[in-house]
Design a protein around this nucleic acid. Sequence first.
DNA 1: ATGGCCACCGAGGGTGGA
Length: 256
Amino acid sequence: MKIVTWNVNSVNVRLPNILKYLREYQPDILCLQELKCMEDKYPLEPINDVGYQSIHCCQKTYNGVSIISKAKATDVEYNPVNVNDEEKRSIAATFNGIRVINFYVVNGQALNSDKYNHKLVWLEQAKKYIKMQLTKHPKLIVLGDFNIVPNESDAHDFSSDDILCSLKEREALKSIIKLGLYDSYIEKDTDLPYTWWDYRGGAFHRDIGYRIDLLLASHNLHKEIRNYEVHKDTRHKSWCHEQPKTSDHAPVMIEC
DNA sequence: ATGGCCACCGAGGGTGGA
């Protein structure tokens, strides 16, 4: 079973990339973040045409999350984690006995910003939801764009004064993991751990990145994970000729 | 070269991303 998280930075701009990814990698479950469209603009038909179903939680311009899958979703919850109902940052469903919770965590912008407090409040809500979900679902995975690095080694430029790296947000992530989750990241000697590289300054080319896209599995699922891959090929402009502009995130896959 | 911000809205530059 292949489970993937990918922040696509606009589902419509990235549609050719997404369809190519589905055809080539054949994931069982592909969780997307940053759809940036309303439901009536969500490209359901082309996704169906390559043999996949989709559930999606949309808003205008910002945010938005979906789960694309081969199997039918059951027990679907739309935006179960929210501080205000406007922001669509969460969607959850069960696929063949596996509970999948897809998050686009608040970015937070800067430590002195109101958005940073919003991020911390949102993470508190997420923790409550996950705690409740763990009591119901032995096989569970929380995945998505967390906008937080778990460890100092997960940032090329680690500074505790910077967003993504600061103490409070990392403590919030740790306390979520302590509920009974396991970071599925498997270190590869050949690669730095990053999943996101800034568009600016040739960051990808210079491998100046951060590991902020995470898959956190419950013990019963984690013990079955046998592979972990970051699909950096999708970051190359030559990978998809129909849409040479790429997302700034790479898809991250586990197999179990 | 595996290369240098991108996408949104709306009509041009401001905003948000991470």
